[in-house]
Design a protein around this nucleic acid. Sequence first.
DNA 1: ACTCTGATTGTTCGC
DNA 2: GCGAACAATCAGAGT
Length: 93
Amino acid sequence: MSAPREAKKRTTRRKKDPNAPKRALSAYMFFANENRDIVRAENPGVTFGQVGRLLGDKWKALTDEEKQPYEAKHAADKKRYESEKELYNATKA
DNA sequence: ACTCTGATTGTTCGC
DNA sequence: GCGAACAATCAGAGT
């Protein structure tokens, strides 16, 4: 536990920081980017309800090796975020 | 010092 | 256009 996102109305949050250093995308984001093509291609007709859940299920189905390409993407994106962070504390200060 | 929560990221789909 | 499940995540804030 640590993040009980049960009824946490999380949707299009808002920025509270001065320059809002938006975080980096998650591995899931990259994964979804490629999966949306595959999953939907393999499951023609499945709506967000199905694909969405199926996607997450498959996501974990992958192993660290599978996630590697996605994690790598996230790592690259994270660096991008670092730039924001830098400018953030640089501007905010 | 340690912990936690909040904020954020992108997809799909329908209305 | 937005909201909502799906998952990750990271950093700052609070205790």
